[in-house]
Nucleic acid binder design. Structure first.
Lengths: 202, 202
DNA sequence: CGCGGAGTTAACCAAATGGTTAAACAAATA
DNA sequence: TATTTGTTTAACCATTTGGTTAACTCCGCG
């Protein structure tokens, strides 16, 4: 997310903002040009087409939402700690990029092939397997209660990501402003970690 | 969701399908007309504009995603049971309408005002308050461990809805087809309920 | 039968949109 | 200074898109 002042970079930043907010179908090339403060022709000069520009923003977002968590899951630490670390990582990342997950999820649904192709070649986050095995091992050792690991995995991810996907709705439902929502997410790190640990108590 | 054979109804059904799959920005009036097997002018004859047609589909979806759960939460039964009932209700509803939540959440983010206006007049699901009070009462009585009720609420909803929001992604990540995904969601009803009950064990 | 109105359609329209082009500009190079 | 090379712009273009119109069909009713 470097902020170089070159036109090339300004375009990417503008594209990121517009695509994230409006999606591929809703974004207008003119919007992006305006946001970047340049002529529309420059977009094509540097990136050929709307689709090409979108792909750059999209894969950058995928990297942020899916790939980077791998590094956290690769660290060497007890499973109990690793759960907390992963939860914190997600909530921190998404607090800085609230629009990220809905954007990614929506575009995947619009065009699943785009991402499925990549999964065929190699799993997008290999360490999730490792993590699930560590959890399974902890269950065998009696550290955790035995539950279905994929369901557990999905649950942890759900509790971290969903609040950001539903942010405007939750804000309306619980009548909280942006600051309060931020505080809620801050306190959510501990809540989710504790909640999961209690649920896994034998 | 009635299937009357009148043109008026055929249009709504077609609009529902197209809008749910492509969203407001991505949907084309021609797509809807084709899906309904009629001339594009008919759409305007019956529903004036794209926006008007969209609003009908949108509020119908809101009703399905947010309002109907109220009935479940209004039923008279012990909290422990009610949690399971709400979870089941959501997973059953969404299994029949997998595109529903992403559609709704996305359109809310695109235009939050649309829904915020409604929340100002009256809460869209008053019984959530009741439910949270029942949970708080159960905590006071020592039936449940004390946790922050809104955080708990958000967590339950997350675990129910998120898998459908991320459906294509989860299917790719865990390599499951539609049938297997359906089974996973079927088994998820029990998983989430148990998971929550264990997490709330004092 | 003929009249009237609801239902339906093909053709049309203006605006928006992704993309192109040719000319202008600026900074380095010879 | 003249030339070249990469950058930037205004104007333009073809297609798409939401929406309109005028004519046509069909059915019930006098």
């Amino acid at each position: 997310m470097q902020t170089l002042n070159t036109t090339e970079q300004q375009i990417i930043e503008a594209a990121r903002k517009i695509f994230m907010h409006k999606g591929l179908a809703g974004a207008r090339m003119q919007d992006i040009a305006d946001e970047a403060g340049i002529n529309k022709a420059m977009l094509h000069y540097y990136y050929r087409s709307k689709e090409k520009l979108f792909e750059i923003v999209f894969w950058e977002a995928i990297d942020q939402l899916l790939v980077r968590v791998n590094a956290v899951l690769a660290e060497k630490m007890p499973v109990e700690e690793k759960i907390g670390a992963a939860v914190s990582h997600y909530i921190i990342t998404l607090s800085d990029n609230p629009y990220l997950p809905l954007f990614v999820l929506n575009e995947i649904q619009q065009n699943p092939d785009r991402i499925i192709q990549r999964f065929v070649h190699a799993p997008l986050f290999p360490n999730v397997q490792v993590f699930m095995q560590e959890i399974a091992a902890a269950m065998e050792q009696g550290i955790f209660r035995k539950v279905n690991p994929p369901q557990l995995m999905v649950s942890i991810i759900s509790m971290c990501i969903f609040p950001f996907v539903a942010k405007p709705l939750l804000q309306a439902a619980f009548t909280v402003n942006d600051v309060q929502f931020g505080m809620m997410m801050e306190e959510r790190k501990k809540f989710v970690t504790d909640f999961v640990m209690h649920a896994l108590q034998p």
